[in-house]
């Protein structure tokens, strides 16, 4: 089982004219995989494709060798925690899990047992007797998670599972994902905040407007982003000429262009961290006075900056 992979072969999905995802080629091994991208980048679409809730317009998908067209086999091994925040009417948390397990063909005793286990794992035992409709956002999130893991699948697809959880519950959920991954499961998590998941993921897939921008281990992704898409930084300052000659000696700076009005410059760098350090140095030395510093609005990079979030801002 551990050798199995989730494979996307040239998969595209269009909703009418709207692009969901385009030309995705992925091969996902066991462990925790994070799908990261801003809203509307196609994370949910990829997950729905894995689980057969939507069908690809082009291409093929296989989940451990099973086609998503075949729910009878697929959902014996797949559990999916969707983004939809809706539940069967009038059920308690316990009934919700139990009846789903009955649909899986489990006997009464078995279903009971599995339900209790899943409730325990997600810390929902106490609330199990209350109606789901009366749950708070975090509890709904956890009961959905319980629903996804209750039949003990070997592929777990979780759409923004950390949304709405308080820090305690978040830590517990992350610990749960880790232990499941350690057992050899595929755990696929989506998030729009990279630093929320990068420390627990074995690999990340960066998505932007339907395209896979980068994929692999987090370190590799970071450097790949910097190598292939140098970041353009716009600096408005006094004496830009002096700054230009200073930064041009740095080997990660690819290009420097002066502004026409002579009050700023545009630099392309493969290592923004070092560039910002050099900038700080220049200010400290009194070489320049800075009016403003901003990454130019390069498409892929603005996404990356957004994903990296506070690391970029910290400098």
């Amino acid at each position: 089982m551990s050798g199995g992979r989730i494979v996307f072969e040239d998969v595209s999905k269009f909703y009418g004219d709207v692009l969901g995802v385009n030309r995705v080629n992925l091969s996902i091994p066991p462990g925790i995989t994070a799908l990261v991208g801003p809203n509307g980048s196609g994370k949910t679409t990829l997950m729905n494709l894995i689980t057969g809730l939507v069908r690809p317009t082009r291409g093929r998908i296989s989940v451990l060798g099973i086609s998503p067209d075949d729910p009878e086999r697929l959902f014996k091994v797949v559990g999916y925690c969707t983004q939809f925040d809706s539940f069967p009417r009038g059920k308690t948390g316990y009934e919700f899990l139990y009846s789903s397990l009955r649909l899986h063909g489990k006997s009464h005793a078995e279903a009971r047992e599995l339900t209790m286990t899943a409730l325990e794992l997600t810390g929902m035992t106490d609330a199990a007797g209350r109606r789901v409709a009366a749950y708070s956002k975090g509890m709904r999130q956890r009961i959905k998670l319980a629903h996804a893991i209750c039949h003990q699948p070997s592929v777990l697809v979780l759409d923004e599972p950390l949304n709405g959880l308080d820090p305690m519950a978040r830590a517990e959920a992350i610990a749960l994902f880790r232990s499941l991954a350690a057992e050899g499961l595929h755990v696929i998590i989506s998030s729009h905040i990279l630093h929320e998941v990068d420390c627990i993921s074995d690999q990340v897939v960066l998505l932007n407007s339907g395209y896979v921008v980068a994929e692999g281990q987090i370190q590799a992704v970071r450097s790949e982003m910097n190598q292939e898409h140098p970041l353009q930084i716009m600096v408005r300052c006094s004496r830009p000429g002096a700054l230009a000659s200073r930064v041009f000696t740095l080997d990660h700076v690819v290009e420097v262009r002066m502004h026409a009005d002579g009050r700023g410059l545009l630099a392309s760098t493969r290592n923004p961290d070092l560039f910002y350090q050099a900038l700080n140095q220049a200010v400290l030395e009194g070489l320049i006075d800075i009016e403003s510093v901003a990454p130019a609005d390069d498409d892929v990079h603005s996404v990356y900056q957004y994903l990296i979030g506070n690391e970029g801002e910290a400098l």
Binding site: T51, P71, E72, F75, S86, P88, S100, H104
Partner: peptide
Amino acid sequence: VEKTLHYYFLAPVRREV
């Protein structure tokens, strides 16, 4: 309408069944 159909589609049961 209730947005709960996916719970049925996520069960290991053929849709025809």
